[in-house]
Design a protein around this nucleic acid. Structure first.
Length: 817
RNA sequence: GCGGGUAUGGCGGAAUUGGCAGACGCGCCGGACUUAGAAUCCGGUGUUGCAAGACGUGAAGGUUCAAGUCCUUUUACCCGCACCA
């Protein structure tokens, strides 16, 4: 009887025989199968980890049996806020709690029996890893891809700390639910925007879910348009606006610049000064919550200055308003109320002019007093551009602006540079020092890692915890040898996880971040599997870092993850997301202990569509326990059978062969697609067919040749799904260790297709009966046979046949009147 | 608001290209074995109807010999982005 004991037995043997290790000499057959590494914030592996790792291990074992040299590493994304928050709450040091959790989780991962290569393990909070994370930072700094600037960041006034964007949930702090405000701080950024076009373009060639590509596409947010230069009347000043609708430029009735824009002070007139200053102050105070409110009315203030329309020469008012974002485009927009809804609302409120310059191509009634007309159309009231279509006008007007040095074509991206500074303790220190004489000085490679000190007061009070460690802060300048101070911020944990795929295959390298020649053979990752929540951040960052490393000459790889799959989410039995507060959390350990790891992973694979997930079902688990019993009884029987020699295969047996090989073909296909549920359904069908055949054998006292012969194949088919169980059965059947050193069975051509096929016969689209035909018969012959069939008459009821549709080997449809 | 996804028996879920809807499993019903039960093995099970049949993939239309699958409209839920000029 399969149980936990069998798990233990084989896990020990696999460990001793180093079954999961990678053989470098077989590099030409390498298959890099990667699951997103674990975040050891909770103390234990949860069902979600299992659902990611169990089925993917089945996939990896399948690949191994296909002859690939599989590299399936595992590690821990160990830095990060949750450990620090836990420390703040309990007083247990993040290092201690993290190492503790890793210890527990490693044990659990081993109890899973997955083919993880633990020799290749990486733990991002260990010095031998974050040394290279810091090295990566310095490399980017050297390349000009890391820079420091003042930024307006999220601030939680209650926790007294900066928050990452992802920690701001609907305008509130994820920890204390206080309303988040903004604060100006000098921060380190990575210049991901340099790669915007390539990040967008590279998506095309990737075997990724469309949805994920779409999310990245939206995140990058490419927008094609024009810039136009507006001069400020009476001043030697000018500013650019970005627009995707330059065809409406003759309808500009005012321009708006962002309140934070540096030009605001220069153009504000004396009379307007107090209004403007008051408005800017109000904008600064505004909370994230208010900013996000959908129904928020637009506000703004007139600066007192005027701009000149570069096409019409008209004089128009310059306003500031916070509906214009300083961080997108040029931070200035031209407002065309007649053709833009936001501008329309603003113009209505402040009684600004509305001038229509585009009309519909198909005579639509447009009432420009009631609402904006935002569709493309034909230009009117636009002087020499009248009569052009929107598309034509975009080109003509931009060219006109270009000739007059007042504008150009322009592509803008929504993607912002990646803010990597965190005022946090539990992360990799940013390896730079500040010297009064030399300025920002990178820590030399020989001095890496900049160690994260253990004894630090990490309770949040608005300052970086590291700033409170005098021992850490004060240092000497590597350049001039004088007194200097260390950077006290740490790196965003997404930096740690952006390059780990490169470190796994060369995790013990002490000289280099990784060996270029070797890495170029191991990468890219052939199959990457993890949750869809990483669709934008992690996956985009990892792609960016890969491109940067490539440009640094460290690898030829430009896309780290060739093929990507997101597993679904396992919900609680009540259909809700599992959470402690709902009391619907399922602990894998209990089930693994009771039924064995294979039962548990088989349940996870069979009960859901892999990419969908779904609610946990207790009955589903017991059903799988039952199936294992049924399977084991069958296999024991098959193993115990005596081979009786019979020369010919009977009809029953050939039927079984057709079924078996067709199912086998399907299993191979399903596994390749990670459709574990249907693959297991087919294994169950094989099981059922063998039971039935065995029964027939008992009844007729026929030979049992087929069952005896098939046993080796059958165990191999099951092996990736239930590795411990299969290994045990393989041994019991008298085979040598290990079943995984054997090839995965393939369907034999000769058993896939029969000479005769059962074809359904429809009348007006409804199936009436099934007819047995020789394969590939011509249409005329099929028609003849069908018309001669005695059963047809009774279904026709005297109706006349109008037409007969014959789809060879598929279906026959008789249309009657 | 914009973008994307999902919807199929009592339940989880199948259906690769428009071609027998409901594979496989749970549950339920029945049979065998048993003194009995448990376990096991076998059979049945979309709805409706005695039956022939009719109906049936969130809803309403449409295209087609044929639609879960394609088109139009629409509802509910989920996810992403959110004043992006």
């Amino acid at each position: 009887m399969y149980n936990k004991e069998i798990d233990n037995k084989w896990q020990k043997i696999w460990d001793e025989k180093k079954s999961a290790s990678f053989h470098k000499e077989r590099i030409d057959k390498k298959y890099y199968c990667l699951e997103m590494f674990s975040y050891p914030s909770g103390a234990k592996l949860h069902v979600g980890h299992w659902y990611n790792y169990g089925p993917v291990d089945t996939f990896a074992r399948f690949k191994k049996m296909q002859g690939y040299e599989v590299f399936q590493p595992m590690g821990f994304d160990a830095f990060g806020l949750p450990a620090e928050n836990y420390a703040i709450k309990t007083g247990i040091h993040p290092y201690d709690s993290t190492m503790n959790n890793i210890d527990t989780m490693e044990k659990q991962l081993k109890a899973m029996g997955a083919m993880f290569n633990f020799d290749a393990e990486v733990v991002t909070c260990k010095e031998d890893y974050y040394k290279w994370t810091q090295w990566l930072f310095l490399k980017l700094l050297e390349m000009g891809l890391a820079y420091r600037k003042n930024a307006n960041v999220n601030w939680c006034p209650s926790c007294n700390t900066v928050l990452a964007n992802e920690q701001v949930i609907d305008g509130e702090c994820e920890r204390c639910s206080s309303v988040v405000t903004k604060k100006d701080l000098t921060q380190w950024f990575f210049k991901i925007t340099d790669y915007a076009e390539e990040l967008l373009d590279g998506l095309k060639e990737l075997d990724w879910p469309d949805k994920t590509k779409k999310i990245q596409t939206n995140w990058i947010g490419k927008s094609t348009g024009s810039v136009a230069t507006f001069k400020v009347e009476g001043k030697e000043l000018a500013f650019d606006v970005f627009t995707t609708r330059v065809d409406t430029i003759c309808g500009v009735s005012y321009v708006v610049i962002a309140p934070e824009h540096e030009m605001v002070a220069k153009i504000t007139t004396e009379e307007q000064k107090s209004n403007i200053e008051e408005y800017i102050e109000r904008c600064r105070r505004i909370t994230e919550i208010d900013r996000l409110a959908d129904d928020r009315e637009k506000t703004g203030v007139f600066t007192g200055s005027y701009a000149i329309n570069p096409v019409t020469g008209e004089k128009i008012q310059i306003w500031i308003a916070d509906y214009v974002l300083a961080t997108y485009g040029t931070g200035c927009v031209m407002a065309v109320p007649a053709h833009d809804e936001r501008d329309f609302a603003f113009a209505k409120k402040y009684d600004l002019p509305v001038k229509q310059v585009v009309t519909s191509t198909d005579g639509e009634n447009i009432d420009i007093k009631k609402e904006a007309f935002t569709k493309p159309g034909i230009l009117i009231n636009s002087g020499k551009f009248n009569g052009l279509t929107t598309d034509e006008a975009k080109n003509k007007i931009t060219e006109y602006l270009k000739e007059n040095e007042l504008g150009d074509f322009k592509i803008t991206y929504r993607l912002r540079d990646w803010l990597v500074s965190r005022q946090r303790y539990w992360g990799a220190p940013i390896p730079v020092v500040y010297c009064d004489i030399c300025g920002i000085v990178p820590v030399p490679e020989k001095d890496l890692p900049v160690k994260l000190p253990y004894d630090v007061e990490f309770k949040p009070d608005g300052k970086s915890p590291l700033a409170k460690s005098e021992e850490f802060v004060s240092t000497t300048c590597p350049h001039c040898g004088g007194k200097a101070k260390r950077e006290t911020d740490t790196l965003d944990t997404f930096v740690c996880s952006s390059w780990y795929q490169f470190r796994y295959p060369d995790n013990k390298n002490t000289d280099k971040i990784f060996d270029t020649e070797w890495i170029d053979k191991m990468l890219p990752v052939d199959k990457y599997v993890g949750g869809p929540e990483h669709a934008a951040m992690h996956l985009l960052y990892a792609r960016f870092v890969t491109k940067a490393l490539s440009d640094a000459g460290l690898t030829k790889v430009r896309e780290p993850f060739k093929s990507l799959v997101h597993q679904g989410l396992i919900l609680g039995p009540d259909g809700n997301k599992m959470s402690k507060s709902k009391g619907n959390v399922i602990s894998p350990d209990v089930y693994v202990e009771k039924y064995g790891s294979d039962v548990f992973r088989m349940y996870l694979m069979f009960g859901f569509s892999y990419i969908e997930g779904g609610p946990w079902s207790e009955e589903g688990v017991t059903a799988m326990v039952k199936y294992f019993g049924r399977l084991e009884r069958l296999l024991e029987k098959m193993i115990s059978l005596k081979d009786t020699k019979v020369s010919e295969i009977s009809k029953d047996e050939s039927e079984l062969c057709y079924l078996f090989h067709n199912l086998l073909k399907g299993i191979n296909y399903d596994l390749e697609q990670m459709q574990f549920n249907t693959a297991i359904a087919k294994i169950m069908e094989i099981t059922n067919a063998f039971y039935k055949y065995d029964q027939a054998v008992e009844d007729d006292k026929k030979n049992t040749k087929l069952l005896k012969e098939t046993i080796s194949q059958f165990i191999r088919i099951i092996a990736p799904f239930a590795p411990h169980f299969a290994e045990e059965m393989w041994e019991r059947a008298g085979n040598e260790f290990s079943v995984f050193d054997n090839v995965y069975p393939q369907a034999e051509e000769k058993w896939l297709e029969k000479d005769e096929v059962e074809i359904p016969v429809q009348i007006n689209g409804n199936v009436k009966f099934v007819i047995l035909l020789n394969k590939d018969l011509g249409k005329e012959q099929v028609e003849k046979i069908v018309l001669a069939d005695g059963r047809l008459e009774s279904y026709l009821n005297g109706r006349a046949i109008k037409k007969i549709i014959v789809v060879t080997n598929k279906i026959i449809n008789i249309v009657v009147g």
